[in-house]
Amino acid sequence: MRTVSHRVNTKKSHATSTEFGKSTSELLILKPEGYPMSGMMEEYPIVENRDVFEFYAREQWNGYVARKGDYLFDRRMFPDFAYRIIDVEPAESLIGMNTSIIVTEEENSLFSTNEIKSDVVFDDVIGQENAKRKCKLIERFLDEPERFGKWAPRNILFFGPSGTGKTMLAKALANKTDVPIIPVKATQLIGEYVGDSSRQIHQLYDRAEEMAPCIIFIDELDAIALDRRFQELRGDVSEIVNALLTEMDGIEEREGVCTIGSTNRAQSLDAAVRSRFEEEIEFVLPGEEEIRQIFESNVKTFPLPVEDCDFKALAKKAKGLSGRDLVEKVLKTALHQVIIEDRETVRAEDFEKAFSKLGKNEPTQDPSGLYV
């Protein structure tokens, strides 16, 4: 039995009349800490039935204000046993009878800080009309998962150049359907020891099932689902791929869970993993008209005024750049230079200089074909 190595906070967290305005917790992540006194029990209580434990926990802590770092104490089954709150969504919210509760022994839970709800809308994604159209299928599934049965679109692949809006569209989809999204970088799922990676993946799907209907968005999928021909470069590929295939195959039915994988290297994916995606949705680099819209939409949020600028002409010079490149390497570079020079307006030549730093003075061949 491990002892608590730091002082236990014994201050009560129960809601008072001044805290009635707080929202109800959607997710509560706890870490078992043990008893204040050593020697009372050699092992932590084992949670054998998660549903029963969650109901019991909600019932006894219903109305408590959950704050990250505070402690919750068991009052009946294992009196005075302490759980520390690793994370709570929303912050400082009230535990209620619909709060999803996860117990983990990990100090830094993999999914404790990820976004639960999205505020991105489809209009935020300029262009990608074909991708938006195909996403209507996922939208209908998340709205009414029971209608699809075994024909549900559970696994979707977003592929195309970096910075073309794959992550934004996944978040917009979650917002449109009012479902939570769990965005995860694939590299977060790579464990330090044998067995860690598969455990991380199963933990991810366990949480999504508790929040269903829910979207799991795995960015940079190729980092964990490499073609098995490259296994000599990554010894843990087989473990990761097998765990991912188990979840995607639906051997354990995950009702209302949709997996969206994202990659800019579709050809490097393991064939077995890629075959599990029922739909592949391609994202392409923006055309001239879309580039103009990206320019005009983003300069509206500049903290400085922009002098009359021919964005249509600038769009011709930006051929081959992604939306993220346009924002981060052209617009932001130009704005920062103006601020450095203590000027009050952004002019067309500022954007021209930003292009020259990229070597984009001449139109560039559209490389989107590399990702087909």
Rank of each mutant, 00 (worst) to 15 (best):
Y193K: 13
L27E: 02
E232H: 12
N155C: 14
T18K: 13
E105T: 15
T18S: 14
F283G: 07
P183A: 03
L285D: 06
K132D: 12
G256N: 01
D219G: 15
R234S: 14
D80T: 07
I46M: 07
L94T: 10
R199S: 14
D124C: 06
A348T: 11
F295C: 09
L269P: 10
S25H: 00
G163D: 06
L27D: 04
R133S: 06
C214D: 09
P213C: 04
Y205L: 13
C135G: 05
K166V: 13
T333W: 11
Q293L: 15
I101D: 10
L94N: 05
E210Q: 14
I340L: 15
D350A: 06
A225T: 10
K12M: 11
F122G: 01
P153E: 01
E33F: 01
A91W: 12
K134G: 05
T246R: 15
L233E: 12
G359N: 03
G256M: 00
S322C: 11
V125Q: 07
R147S: 00
G127Y: 02
V184R: 08
E54V: 07
S100A: 07
S25L: 01
S118V: 05
E253N: 05
D249S: 10
I85M: 07
R228C: 12
G359W: 01
L204E: 04
L221A: 07
R154S: 14
K360G: 07
G34H: 04
K11E: 13
M168D: 07
I181P: 05
N361K: 08
R75W: 07
L321W: 01
T10Q: 13
K150T: 09
S198V: 03
R229F: 08
S268C: 12
I224V: 11
A223D: 02
E54C: 12
D308H: 00
F295E: 08
G195V: 01
N114E: 06
H202R: 15
A271Y: 02
I251V: 15
I339P: 11
I181Y: 08
L72D: 10
V257W: 00
N130L: 14
Y44K: 11
G21T: 01
D236I: 15
I182E: 04
D249H: 02
D70I: 01
D249K: 03
A66Q: 09
P90I: 12
E146S: 06
I240N: 01
K332Y: 02
V4K: 10
K300H: 03
P286H: 00
V120I: 08
S13T: 15
T259F: 05
M97W: 02
P79L: 02
E362L: 15
G250W: 00
T187K: 04
D222W: 00
A174K: 08
A91D: 12
S118G: 04
L304Q: 06
K12C: 07
R274K: 14
Y371H: 06
E33T: 05
T263A: 08
V306L: 05
L137C: 09
E255D: 06
F81T: 10
L269W: 01
